[in-house]
Design a protein around this nucleic acid. Structure first.
Lengths: 238, 238
DNA sequence: GTCTATACCTCGATAGAC
DNA sequence: GTCTATCGAGGTATAGAC
């Protein structure tokens, strides 16, 4: 059997030990120091190996504890995942809510900027929050989904106002917002603190892309392409 | 332990039985009918539950076979994953290569259109190809990565030509291409054939977004935002 | 609250009959 | 080439001493 390995995805080579990871800053201090160490350890394990592939021994060991000690602080592996996902979703949403301003260009720019910067800064925890949700119980998943819906509403209300005011071009609001969020979340997959881009640099870049999508009517190619034929490969491009 | 459940992600509620899934069209006919049934079954299991959570019994059972019969056709679970990922990457790349034309707007529009449409049409297999790569052996992963690099090159060469010619605005080529691909792949996460959008509708929409990013210089907000403070929540937006 | 030891289960893969 | 039966490994979670 192949183990889930570091280095397995373009951008998934999270190797917990040498990782510059700020997850430890995130946890609520109603958790004691040992519980917070367990959360940090689990975050790194889930991010690098996936939820299913990490064992309770990995989590406990990463926090310097024996396999059994985890159960004093959390009832299950899944409870830890839920706390990580909940915290990341709540903190990201709180951070990105832009101060209410009149200028809708400012507002959407700001929100994308902050959202991207948060996802880059806390990419290890954010990755777990984005990619491991399928491992939650239905109840816990429903709880996370509520936060995700609120995130969507925050984006949509700004875009809808902008389209109505004519600051933005007329465009399918649900679809662009889905696209903007897809862009804002993508760094979670590949961001590394060791790279050249700071979280804020990235945020600026993506905020610009979002504004481009909202403020320009792109050229429409004259030739509307025939439907793609899945059985037939196209000619090589070059 | 929480099992990986259908309905766990906004958009991950793949429930294999009632799924309109075209994966069966994809497999090379050098595989016999039984092997192809195993590939289809595995694709649906991996997409709905994840690689780690699916058992060899799930795969065999889904193909109407006993647990042991799988090993006559494939040496391991991982070998099946590799064949799914390889096929999806190769077919998507072949399909999206646009015929060489002079007009760079046409070319980038066409390639995004085809890429998105393919990912929507074969979203079940494409999801496995995108999200389960971390479960491959290093050698098999390296093989897939080569195809991914080629996909990147196809995008980059068109964008680079367009920037040089002045058809596109000056922009960081690697970063926009990463963004465009993130958009083109995102439907894999949420697309359903039961929805209102056809794969081609979606392709057109995303091709428009990509062109917007490449052909417009977005407004820059006057107030350059102060760095985000992770310990402090912003004010509610509205 | 942490430890060692272990119960109990399920999984991937194999053996061997047909 | 498919089956039934099973091995051996490794998983979650618990028991009970300290």
């Amino acid at each position: 059997m192949a183990k889930r390995q570091p280095g397995a995805f373009d951008t998934w080579e999270l190797d917990a030990p040498q990782l510059q990871d700020r997850s430890a800053e995130l946890w609520d201090h109603s958790y004691g120091p040992v519980a917070r160490r367990l959360l940090t350890s689990a975050t790194r394990c889930y991010a690098s190996k996936g939820f299913q592939a990490t064992t309770t021994r990995d989590i406990s060991g990463g926090a310097g504890l024996s396999p059994a000690a985890m159960y004093v602080h959390f009832p299950s592996k899944e409870a830890i995942l839920f706390e990580i996902a909940r915290t990341a979703h709540v903190k990201a949403l709180d951070d990105m809510r832009s101060p209410a301003q009149d200028d809708l260009v400012e507002r959407i720019w700001h929100i994308v900027y902050r959202h991207v910067a948060w996802n880059a800064r806390y990419h290890v925890a954010a990755r777990v929050a984005q990619y491991e949700l399928a491992n939650l119980t239905p109840e816990n998943y429903a709880s996370i989904r509520e936060i995700r819906r609120e995130t969507n509403r925050v984006y949509r209300s700004i875009v809808a106002d902008g389209v109505e005011d004519g600051v933005f071009v007329p465009i399918d609001i649900k679809r662009v917002v889905r696209g903007i969020i897809a862009l804002a979340v993508d760094p979670v997959r590949w961001y590394r603190h060791s790279g050249t881009d700071s979280p804020e640099d990235l945020g600026e870049f993506y905020a610009g892309l979002a504004l481009a999508m909202l403020t320009s009517t792109p050229p429409v190619p004259a030739s509307r392409t025939e439907p793609s034929d899945p059985t037939q490969a196209g000619e090589p491009a070059r």
